[in-house]
């Protein structure tokens, strides 16, 4: 049995892919429908909404990003909705490597994490050396979390060892920073491949596995997230090491996020119900959650005009 103690030594060797169980899509859809039929009301809804806020990686990943935009995002991360006291702050802000320094400056004095995408995000179409440099640059600039992309082309071509080795190398380049491995499930297409890629990533040392870059549709779905959660559960059962989960992209309203929490609770149990082990990669989710919280407090349906965009 492995332990959870040493993250740097997280790789447990190339997985036996012949033992990866198949996944039945229709069965997954049916299970997801059961999560969605859960009715979350009143106190448990408020608790869920706050939990969701604390799990958000507030994200801006655009070619048009500027220091100004990133500073605004960081302000939002710190001051989600000051009109409502007692709110948690988000888990992290997520930016491109060249914006990490700006974010670090803007978030000084808070314990909000800085996550940076790296490894030729979002396509990953570059050399390993450049990807490692990209990673080191982000870490050196102050990122404590690195969101890498796997080489989907190599994965689809069956070059699983290449994909595995690349993750191991990036993990090493991360040093003390946590590594989130993006599978880009929208390009893997099948749940069987999602399961297989999850195994590769976890065995190669991923601290988190993440669905999507947000640049490819479909991004996160409950179906792929369920399959990844089940992979995490089985990895935990066989190694004793917890791996975190981050669905990203497409989760823009509170109701859907609550269904993700239901799925998380019923698949992995209470231990994962914290920002340490579960994140939402999202840009517009926070405000919808805030509107729902306000509605729960006042009983009045809310307008977006009363909640700051950045």
């Amino acid at each position: 049995m492995g332990t959870n103690a040493n993250r740097a030594d997280a790789a447990v060797g190339f997985p036996d892919l012949s033992r990866v169980p198949p996944v039945d899509e229709v069965g997954v859809n049916e299970r997801v429908a059961r999560f969605q039929s859960r009715s979350i009301k009143k106190a448990s809804k408020v608790e869920a909404l706050k939990c969701i806020l604390s799990m958000i990686d507030l994200t801006t990943l655009e070619g048009q990003d500027t220091p100004g935009k990133v500073r605004q995002l960081c302000q939002k991360a710190i001051h989600l909705h000051d009109a409502m006291p007692g709110l948690p702050h988000v888990a992290a802000v997520c930016v491109y490597p060249n914006m990490v320094a700006v974010a670090k400056e803007a978030l000084r004095g808070t314990d909000i994490n800085i996550a940076s995408v790296a490894t030729a995000f979002p396509s990953g179409m570059s050399s390993l050396d450049l990807k490692l440099d990209d990673t080191r640059m982000a870490v050196e600039a102050g990122a404590s979390e690195i969101d890498m992309v796997i080489s989907r082309g190599a994965f689809l071509a069956g070059e699983y060892r290449y994909v595995f080795d690349e993750i191991v190398a990036v993990k090493e380049a991360c040093g003390d920073a946590h590594l989130k491995v993006i599978l880009e499930t929208g390009e893997l297409r099948t749940l069987d491949r999602v399961r297989r890629a999850s195994e590769l990533a976890m065995h190669a040392g991923a601290d988190f596995i993440k669905t999507s870059t947000g640049k490819i549709q479909p991004a996160a779905t409950m179906q792929v997230t369920l399959v990844m959660l089940q992979a995490i559960r089985d990895f935990f059962a066989s190694t004793g090491r917890m791996v975190g989960m981050k669905p990203a992209g497409g989760i823009s309203n509170a109701k859907l996020a609550i269904h993700y929490l239901v799925m998380l609770k019923e698949t992995l149990g209470n231990a994962w119900m914290t920002p340490e082990w579960f994140r939402f990669g999202a840009s517009s989710l926070a405000n919808d959650v805030l509107m729902q919280l306000e509605k729960q407090a006042t009983g009045v349906y809310q307008s977006a005009d009363y909640f700051s965009k950045d």
């Binding site: 859960r38 979350i40 809804k45 939990c51 609770k265 231990a271």
Partner: peptide
């Protein structure tokens, strides 16, 4: 895995 306690459905 621990399922009891924690966040519960009202």
């Amino acid at each position: 895995l621990a399922f009891s306690g924690g966040w519960e459905y009202a």
